[in-house]
Design a protein around this nucleic acid. Structure first.
Length: 597
RNA sequence: GGCCCUGUAGCUCAGCUGGAUAGAGCGAGAGUCUUCUAAACUCUAGGUCCUGCGUUCGAGUCGCAGCAGGGUCACCA
């Protein structure tokens, strides 16, 4: 039983005994005492004054007295208006440090042996252009949520569903055939995904020109868009692809290969990865069988033209197309199929999709249809819907050239990290390789923290004109705090300070030390709460609070300079504890922490 | 137009299931390095929590209405 449970069960018993109030322990909420008051946990007594028939102050005092008498770890209490502030004995905090400081996995749970896995799908790129800032948010969130659920005790499998087929790929292929002159990543020195993206843009340029000419010759816009020669040819290429045309398939494989090599490089730089990669080209037909089954079950219906639909009007939605009249499948059809495939592949307890909130409707429909098809696991599908990344003048638009490219952004961050580091000039003794690694983890630390500290469900703003900060509430701030602490711990070890972690500490804690200990104490429950909310942002905010509490302590408390050996050892132990907690929380965010910087 | 999401300091964001005088960072102003890493710390200034009504002992938080912004309503993915 943890301390809040201990306190709430005692309060529940006290309420019953004093006033005959029946209230379950888990419905009693304790909040952290605000720092301007004395105490650690606060009980709001207003809800009980009516039944107790006494003034709030009196009720608070009576409960406080009774709780103190019942629990030795409650050292005292005070009542301010209707707020009962309970003061926890230092011995409790000291014991907590003694027990947990040396635990390298503090705050992390290990998966239960028998638990079914949780499958997290994220990234899921199209293979016609390179990754951009929106993908970065997706990838960082997907990776971090996976880490977070793992930290909360889940057995996580990360999967990627690559959209490697479709008209968009054909556009790049066609443009490359027409205008590429055999250009390759090798011959051009371009990263493969960028090269393919270049031809996607090239297609669009020529296509627009064709549409314009058609319209000038009097063709309606709709028709011009449909009948422009390039579009017609792209469509026919797609058809040939579906028929298995050797030439088309060979080109498709070649260009996709370039893209994958490019993606792999970006994934590696971002520090993300997958346990399994699905390719839509291999799964896109799966949904069709389900549709047949659905027709047989009578939950789907066929219109006169032969197209197949699901009627969702009973659920307050529309009718949804599942097969075109020519029998080809749409996005939803494929997603139904891949959901089943994934369920069968993993026997998953949950299927999590990290996908932007622009697809909220899609997932609502997906779950409904899976349910109608009779899959009991339909409610295990969870759409982790995250907000858009907006630029100061709105959404990113590839046509307007306002897309922030992922590789460019990482390059930019690394350059900034290097400049900042050189300015500080603290790493002159590092080797070139170590220094490069440092710049990299600082760059990624700044970028990842910047993105992950924002509530995933909310849209966020990114201003390319202002580079991401390295001071204040940032990744490097926390990385710096860690490096500083490690420096102290290294020096302590060199001078032979003994960290008698399992001994009992007999020291007087300062207010700042207590603040640090309490922050540490909150880690396990923070991890569980963040996992329940799928929110790396809660972890980021926690890490920041902890780092701030430590820095404040560090600023005016001697550690290695402390003359009392017992106190010095305790403080060093506390330092090591904080460093480890920072490391573990930053790891959940996918951020590496340096030993020095 | 229907449905969904968002609206907190000049800017970017916290604020857990309703609880004390609404918090950080950046930016602005003032201090702190002969001493454990100043990418830090300490102060100051800055708010009709979009508006109104309601529920409640108590509302930034819950409900309703309105206003503003975004998303979505494809035989695209």
């Amino acid at each position: 039983m943890n301390i809040t449970e201990t306190l709430t069960t005692t309060v529940a018993a006290v309420l019953k005994q004093l006033y005959g109030i029946e209230q379950s322990a888990d419905s009693i909420v304790l909040q952290d005492t605000r720092k301007e008051f004395r105490g650690d946990y606060t009980l709001v007594v207003f809800p009980y004054v009516k039944q107790a028939r006494k003034a709030p102050e009196a009720v608070g005092a009576e409960i406080g007295e009774a709780v103190k008498a019942a629990l030795p770890l409650v050292a005292g209490y005070n009542v301010v208006k209707g707020f009962l502030n309970l003061e926890i004995a230092d011995s409790y905090w000291l014991q907590f440090v003694a027990e947990k400081a040396a635990d390298g996995n503090f705050g992390l749970s290990t998966p239960a042996a028998e638990s079914a896995p949780v499958v997290v799908e994220y990234s899921s790129p199209n293979t016609n252009k390179p990754l951009h800032l929106g993908h970065i948010r997706n990838n960082l969130l997907g990776w971090s949520v996976s880490q977070l659920l793992t930290a909360a005790g889940a057995d996580v499998r990360k999967v990627n569903l690559v959209n490697d087929r479709g008209i968009h790929i054909c556009k790049s292929m066609l443009a490359w055939l027409r205008y590429g002159n055999g250009e390759t990543p090798e011959s051009s020195g371009m990263k493969g995904d960028h090269l393919v993206g270049k031809y996607y843009v090239e297609f669009d340029k020529h296509y627009k020109e064709e549409v314009k000419q058609l319209m000038e010759s009097g063709v309606e816009e709709e028709q011009a868009k449909r009948e422009a020669p390039l579009m017609v040819e792209a469509q026919s290429m797609l058809k040939r692809w579906e028929e298995g045309d050797k030439e088309v398939r060979a080109l498709w494989e070649k260009m996709n290969g370039w893209v994958y090599a490019g993606f792999d490089e970006t994934y590696a730089r971002l520090g993300v990865g997958f346990d399994k990669v699905y390719y839509e080209s291999q799964t896109y037909l799966l949904g069709k069988e389900l549709v047949q089954k659905g027709l047989g079950m009578g939950v789907l219906f066929r219109k006169e033209d032969g197209s197949v639909w699901c009627d969702l009007t009973g659920d307050g939605l529309d009718q949804k197309l599942l097969l075109r009249k020519d029998g080809t499948s749409v996005y939803m059809t494929q997603d139904l199929g891949t959901a089943l495939l994934r369920h069968n592949d993993f026997g998953a307890e949950r299927l999590i999709y990290v996908v932007g909130n622009e697809q909220d409707y899609h997932f609502k429909v997906l779950k409904l249809i899976l349910g109608k098809l009779g899959f009991s696991w339909a409610d295990k599908v969870y759409h982790l819907s995250y907000g858009m990344v907006e630029l100061p003048n709105g959404k990113m638009k590839s046509r307007e050239g306002t897309v922030v490219d992922a590789d460019d952004l990482i390059d930019e961050m690394e350059k900034t990290a290097e400049e900042m580091s050189r300015e500080h000039g603290k790493n002159d003794d590092l080797s070139d390789e170590e220094r490069k690694h440092l710049y990299h983890i600082l760059a990624l630390g700044a970028l990842k923290y910047f993105i992950l500290k924002v509530d995933p469900t909310k849209n966020m703003l990114f201003n390319p004109a202002e580079s991401i900060d390295f001071n204040g509430n940032t990744g490097p701030f926390i990385q710096y705090t860690h490096a500083r602490i490690r420096s102290i711990v290294r020096k302590a070890e060199e001078s032979g300070v003994k960290l008698t972690g399992n001994g009992e500490w007999k020291v007087m804690m300062t207010e700042k030390e207590r603040g640090v200990v309490k922050a540490l104490h909150a880690l396990p429950e923070t991890v569980m709460a963040a996992a329940a909310a799928y929110s790396p942002a809660m972890i980021a905010n926690y890490a920041y609070e902890l780092a701030k509490a430590f820095n404040s302590f560090y600023q005016d408390t001697p550690i290695l300079r402390e003359s009392d050996e017992q106190t010095k050892a305790f403080r060093v132990q506390l330092c090591a504890f904080v460093a480890n907690a920072l490391k573990n929380t930053m790891n959940i965010l996918g951020i590496e922490v340096p030993e020095r910087m």
